[in-house]
Design a protein around this nucleic acid. Structure first.
Lengths: 214, 214
DNA sequence: CGGACTGTTGAACGTTCTCAAAGACCGTGG
DNA sequence: CCACGGTCTTTGAGAACGTTCAACAGTCCG
């Protein structure tokens, strides 16, 4: 059981960068920089914009009253987050590392739903698949599924980079940091993965990992 | 650990019923009847239509290779399900009881995304909130949250009707039927709820239940 | 080089699962 | 209407998995 103190850092804007906007019919926005651990938005805040990760990584999470945390999703470079069912944010969003985020504010009158729907549906499928992991899989199955997911999202490049801490992984997989650490060690000892650094993993045997994650 | 055999029943159509269609720009469809336990669609099938529950209840779920099941959502009368990110169903849908379902097939060229987006977003929020339950809550907290959710979806009317079996509840909450049963008994013994029948629960103390579910 | 934070490892505990058996409920047919 | 059979639910006892608590090790930055 653990509690979190939320640090709020005002993002700095760097108009230097000008990557293409995600949506047609949107007003171009500069990239905001968020230092490691800083809050992008909080639960209960007024929503309105979407956010596209330019570099770095973001965690979305909810808290229980006693401080237990569930990370519902990580978002890496290129991914979009921040859609809500109503005008309020239902989750916290924080930068995991030094992160650049571009706000995507739909132009008034633009048909945003046509662009937004595929993203929302993809998020829905992803969340529902994660339900299966949290509801029905063992610790080692969860970690294996997580590693495969991270590898896939990085295009299968080795080594796989884990931008987040063990605590983030635990709070995403519904495990404690100790259990996550033990499973990593076990997979390492079995020769399934190699730990190149705390946040760099080489997957030696993909098939073994796939079998573990079912 | 348990496996499921899927029974496929051809739905019978009753054109008698003609409740209003959910969406503008859709072709009106008759209500299809699905007997208890019958399959509405299967994982891997080609998707295309949406479904609105007219009466009865539906479960959406995924299976692991060894038969473990995770129900990602229940859908009661009036609710809509069946949206997918691509042209394929990623889940199974089954009638829990005798259930009437109306297919909602968008007319060609209709702007379905504008109508669909709110539903998808609501489903996303619901799934992500369920992640918190599965990832971070104890058995009694899960059951309490489930009962409150069912009560709310039925307008707070007493007694709360549970259309599904203990196994369905377990597979939704990531618990075994034995644990679900034990928690029900515990809540009954504490006087928080009253079990009027196997599938009828009276919530005696809402506040206690809310405190339990955090 | 030092200090704080993050991660790893160990031992004991607790919650939930598994296996087993008895009890309650329901639909069917007599 | 009641008896029967099958299914679902409840209850119990023991085992397993993951957590908790604690100490140590490693890593990152100053």
């Amino acid at each position: 059981m653990h509690a979190y103190t939320l640090s709020r850092a005002l993002p700095s804007q760097s108009d230097q960068m000008s990557l293409p906007a995600a949506f047609d019919g949107t007003q171009p926005q500069p990239v905001s920089f968020y230092p490691s651990g800083s809050e992008i938005y909080a639960q209960g805040e007024k929503a309105g914009a979407l956010y596209q990760v330019e570099f770095g990584a973001v965690r979305l999470y909810r808290l229980l009253a006693d401080g237990r945390r569930q990370i519902s999703a990580f978002h890496l470079a290129g991914e979009t987050f921040g859609f809500e069912a109503d005008a309020t944010h239902h989750f916290f969003a924080e930068a995991i590392n030094a992160t650049g985020v571009r706000a995507v504010r739909p132009a008034a009158g633009a048909d945003v739903s046509r662009k937004l729907l595929p993203l929302a549906l993809k998020g829905l499928i992803r969340a529902q698949e994660h339900l299966l992991v949290l509801g029905r899989q063992s610790a080692i199955e969860r970690v294996a599924a997580f590693l495969l997911d991270m590898a896939e999202r990085q295009g299968g490049l080795q080594p796989v980079e884990l931008p987040m801490s063990r605590m983030d992984i635990g709070d995403y997989l519904g495990l404690t940091i100790e259990t996550v650490s033990r499973v990593f060690t076990k997979l390492k000892d079995k020769g399934t993965i190699r730990l190149l650094g705390l946040r760099n993993v080489e997957i030696v045997r993909y098939d073994t990992l796939r079998n573990i994650s079912e």
